[in-house]
């Protein structure tokens, strides 16, 4: 599993094939971040370890982390958008009772 840094020091891309990156540190709502040479403003505060789309992802498209599928997009996801249980669905088993943790 290869790891490459993006131009942004806040993001960690675990595999070149990935369409999501991981936040290396918590970010505040309204703060900005460079993603693929474009500036994006975070629409909400997020903790370290959460995922951000690093390119547009279409509904039904596989979401890749570690170069492997972690599920599919439940809706269209724009670059810079938070990717989590509200827009990412497991292909494995339905994760129940997780709505409470959606931020």
């Amino acid at each position: 599993m290869k790891h490459t840094d993006t131009t942004s020091i806040n993001l960690l891309i675990l595999n070149p094939a990935d369409n999501v990156a991981i936040l290396k540190r918590a970010v505040k709502e309204g703060s900005s971040n460079m993603i693929q040479d474009e500036q994006f403003i975070f629409s909400k505060s997020l903790d370290m370890g959460h995922k951000i789309a690093i390119r547009p992802i279409k509904i039904g498209e596989t979401i890749l982390k570690y170069g492997a599928s972690i599920g599919f997009a439940a809706q269209n996801i724009a670059t810079g958008e938070h990717v989590h249980i509200h827009n990412l669905t497991s292909r494995y088993t339905i994760v129940e009772n997780m709505e409470a943790t959606q931020k």
Binding site: I22, L23, L46, D47, M48, G49, H50, K51, K65, Y66, A68, S69, I70, G71, V83, H84, I85, L88, T89, S90, R91, Y92, T93, V95, N97, M98, A100, T101
Partner: peptide, 16 residues
């Protein structure tokens, strides 16, 4: 739930 709070969205993501 703790996994989801830590940013993990699916069981396959956690297992990976």
């Amino acid at each position: 739930q703790g996994n989801a709070e830590g940013g993990l969205s699916t069981i396959e993501e956690k297992s990976l």
